[in-house]
């Protein structure tokens, strides 16, 4: 149990218990993992661009450290959440007919 203080800590990535599969072909559930994770990466890149733009507006020139150290205030976070929600609505839209009578 006791860990060497020098060793790198790695945590499990999967929960104990059954992994649920919903589609007849489990590959579809797997692909959904890829798509959702990819959607997060696009959002993260967008936020990084937003940080760069905000810092440039403010200071004219910036370093990588400036970007890493940047933390949005509540107002910036609210603007980003608005952007994230619009993005989610564009990307993850269910087929219209799904909710309607066949």
């Amino acid at each position: 149990m006791t860990q060497n203080a020098e060793s790198k800590v790695t945590l499990p990535r999967d929960a104990k218990g059954k992994r649920s599969v919903f589609f007849d072909d489990p590959a579809i559930d797997q692909i959904m993992t890829f798509i959702l994770e990819l959607s997060a990466e696009v959002s993260v890149v967008y936020d990084r661009m937003d940080t760069v733009e905000r810092l440039l507006d403010e200071k004219g020139t910036i370093s990588r450290d400036d970007i890493e150290a940047y933390r949005p205030n509540e107002g910036v976070e609210a603007a980003r959440n608005g952007r994230r929600e619009a993005y989610l609505k564009r990307v993850f839209r269910m087929h219209q007919e799904s909710g309607q009578k066949e």
Partner: peptide, 26 residues
């Protein structure tokens, strides 16, 4: 977390709300 990790976390929060509320609404 780092700059990018925190933005990823905040995105996941919004994603979860989108699935619950927008997709869940259907």
């Amino acid at each position: 977390g780092s700059h990018d990790e925190m933005n990823r976390q905040h995105y996941v929060s919004r994603l979860r709300m989108h699935i619950l509320n927008q997709i869940g609404a259907g």
